[in-house]
Structure formats: C-alpha cells, structure tokens
C-alpha cells in the first residue's frame, strides 16, 4: 500500500497524500457530516469512554493516527470493537465529531480489509485465513467482530435476533472456560424468563428482506 523507502519507520513514512486519503475515506463512508477532520486532540472522548481501559489506543489517538495515514495500525486496533455505543464522546466532543458513527465506519473498514476470505451470511469461522498481508492477524482480536457476525447471521436468516442461541454459540466459541460460571444464568433464562431455546419464527417478508440486504450490499461495495 505504501511505496515509500522501507528503511523508514513505517509509522512515519506515509506520504502526505495517503494521510488525506484515509481521513477522507472515513469521512465519506460515515453518513451525514461526521466532522472527523476537525479533531483538536483534547481527549474528551478518551476521558469519557467507559470501555477505554480495554482499548489499545484511545479514540483521540485513533483520530491522530487517521490524520497521519496510519491505516494498518488503525484497522488492526481493537478500539472500534471495544466501543459500547454509549455516545458520551459524541455529545461531549467540543468539535461535534460523530465519534460513535466513525467507530462503526472503522469497524466496517477493518472487516473489509479481511474480506476476500470472509464468507457472507453463513456461520462465521472462528478465525478466517488472512491473505491481505497488511493486516496482522495476531494483533487482531476477532471476538467482537465474530459476535456481530453471529448476531447478523441469525438476523439474515430469521429476520429477528435469537438471543439465547446467539449467546450460546458465541460463548461456546470464545469463552469456553467461563461456561461453568454461566450455567445458572443460562438455566435462569429458560426457567425464569421463559425464553425458548428454539430459533424464532422467520418473518413473512424474509425473501423481501433478503433482496433488500443483497441490494444494499451491492450499493455498499460500489
């Protein structure tokens, strides 16, 4: 992706052109006017974030990295995946940057960088083969993306989400050691909450929904 002299530190060796391309790409892919280019690096977002401690970079740092054109570092970061969509950063940002929405965009871009080998609308594998050399699989924690994919796999097949199935599949896959601790809760879901262990009934317009989503995916990639 970068064609600069390799002896330079990859973090500082991007051309100016690459910097603005990355920032513009993020801006264009975010609905509405995201103001992502207006960051003054004050750290309100990083200070506000309830899951900030789990992030490898604070959101503020991500904005600086976007500006510096550090594409790989941004797309390998777990920061967008740790976002809980609490919107504290968005309403507090003194520059009105739609930070939560930008995080969604970065998640999209991060997955897209891995897309060639990623199956669509089928139960996702726990890890997918990574052929894009710029993305380092070791740096990337797929739990969050995997959760999203499992969730959506269900929605794309039933039209509605299937909480208990989702939690079951996801936790067996990623948190097998926690299962003993979780058993009482799982039982409670079935007994107390009366949740059904069976998948939900498909919505009637499943075909229609399928067509809409298919068209949306084509529009997304065009």
């Amino acid at each position: 992706m970068t064609d600069v002299v390799s002896v330079l530190d990859p973090h500082t060796s991007h051309t100016k052109r690459e910097d603005s391309i990355l920032l513009r790409e993020v801006s264009l892919r975010t609905p509405g006017e995201s103001h992502v280019d207006m960051c003054i690096q004050c750290g309100t977002c990083g200070g506000s974030c309830p899951s900030g401690s789990a992030m490898d970079h604070t959101p503020r740092a991500i904005f600086a990295m976007l500006r510096a054109g550090m594409r790989d570092d941004v797309l390998n970061s777990n920061t967008p995946w740790m976002c809980v969509s609490c919107y504290f950063c968005t309403v507090r940002c003194p520059q009105n940057i739609h930070i939560t929405d930008v995080m969604y965009t970065l998640k999209n871009m991060s997955l897209e960088a891995r897309k060639p080998t990623m199956p669509v609308a089928s139960p996702p594998p726990t890890a997918w083969g990574l052929k894009n050399s710029s993305i380092d699989p070791k740096k990337y924690n797929p739990t969050a993306a995997d959760f999203s994919k499992t969730f959506i796999w269900m929605v794309e097949n039933f039209g509605r989400s299937f909480e208990i199935g989702l939690a079951g599949v996801h936790n067996v896959r990623h948190f097998i050691t926690r299962l003993p601790n979780m058993t009482p809760m799982a039982i409670g879901m079935l007994t107390k909450k009366g949740m059904s262990p069976l998948p939900p009934k498909r919505i009637k317009g499943m075909d229609q929904l399928g067509k809409i989503l298919q068209r949306a995916k084509e529009l997304e990639s065009s």
């Binding site: 892919r29 975010t30 609905p31 967008p80 995946w81 809980v84 969509s85 969604y104 965009t105 998640k107 999209n108 997955l111 969050a144 993306a145 959760f147 999203s148 994919k149 969730f151 959506i152 929605v155 039209g159 509605r160 989400s161 919505i203 009637k204 317009g205 929904l209 809409i212 989503l213 068209r215 949306a216 995916k217 529009l219 997304e220």
Partner: peptide
C-alpha cells in the same frame, strides 16, 4: 406487521448500508 430486527449495534459494525436498509 412483520417487522424485523433493528440490527442492534451489531449490523452497523459489519456493513453500514445493509444495516441502515435493515
């Protein structure tokens, strides 16, 4: 009648356009 899931915070993470279409 025949509403579908809103996608919660998950679909937006994967694919913005289909997420909004959903």
């Amino acid at each position: 009648e025949d509403w579908n899931c809103c996608g919660a915070t998950e679909y937006l993470s994967l694919d913005i356009t289909p997420a909004y279409a959903l």
